[in-house]
């Protein structure tokens, strides 16, 4: 039952495990496994919507291709790069916290939260653009699509708003989580390394989901 933990624990630590655990190593292994089980269920949570999208995209390839062309590929691409970068800063925060460098941890965490916020801001700009072009079939607003297959394009945009909205919600939770970690870092909370690394796992998963959302939605179109 003793295998290595994903969290590099330091033998010289003075921290005590929570009362239900025998050792800090056991606690860290449990925390890591718990997060991974949660992430597995998150994969299936988004997976259900990816599934529905896949069915419709294979049924209406032309309509989805046309509708995808109305998304802002530039902003979408920039946002993807931002999220990938935020994963890098999160990993650097992990390294810093393991090295017990609180100052560096705080900086990297702050940067991660900032990148997440920029992502959300750009996403907001995109949504506003789509609302203006009457491509948002929400709340009974008119949906105007200048090409054929209006109804199925509407289906595409239903998925676009549902998927990106759900992802944005997860990212918002991620930003709050990272900010909480930042506060923990500034206060030098106990078990800080485990907390930051496990929060990081969630952050990376949100990034990973976007890595699939981006090609499915933005790259379905015929460009060039």
């Amino acid at each position: 039952m003793t295998y290595q933990s994903a969290i590099p624990t330091r033998p010289d630590t003075l921290e005590q495990p929570a009362s239900q655990f025998d050792s800090l190593a056991q606690q860290h292994q449990a925390d890591t496994l718990g997060m991974w089980v949660f992430l597995a269920s998150e994969i299936l949570f988004f997976g259900g919507m990816f599934m529905a999208y896949t069915v419709y995209r294979t049924a209406f390839p032309a309509a989805f291709e046309a509708a995808s062309g109305h998304l802002n590929l530039g902003l979408g691409g920039i946002n993807t790069a931002i999220l990938l970068t935020s994963s890098l800063t999160m990993t650097l925060a992990d390294d810093a916290v393991v090295a017990r460098n609180r100052r560096a941890t705080a900086i990297w965490l702050a940067l991660t939260a900032l990148l997440g916020t920029i992502f959300l801001a750009i996403k907001g700009i995109e949504w506003r653009e789509e609302f203006r072009e009457q491509l948002a079939p929400l709340f009974g607003r008119p949906f105007v699509f200048p090409e054929p297959h209006t109804d199925q394009a509407r289906l595409f945009f239903s998925f676009y708003f549902a998927l990106t909205g759900l992802h944005a919600l997860h990212l918002l939770i991620g930003v709050v989580l990272v900010l909480v970690m930042l506060i923990f870092t500034l206060r030098d909370a106990p078990h800080l390394d485990a907390k930051v690394i496990i929060a990081g796992l969630y952050w990376h998963l949100v990034d990973l989901i976007w890595v699939f959302v981006f090609p499915l939605l933005y790259l379905a179109a015929r460009h060039g």
């Binding site: 295998y3 290595q4 933990s5 994903a6 292994q29 890591t32 496994l33 991974w36 089980v37 992430l39 597995a40 269920s41 998150e42 994969i43 299936l44 997976g47 994963s87 890098l88 999160m90 990993t91 690394i197 990081g200 796992l201 990376h204 998963l205």
Partner: peptide
């Protein structure tokens, strides 16, 4: 980034099962 390379078998199975399912 998510340290699967260093992870113990059980978290690996947990992660894999999300994708397999």
């Amino acid at each position: 980034f998510m340290y699967m390379r260093k992870a113990a078998p059980v978290p690996r199975i947990a992660a894999a099962s999300g994708f397999i399912w």
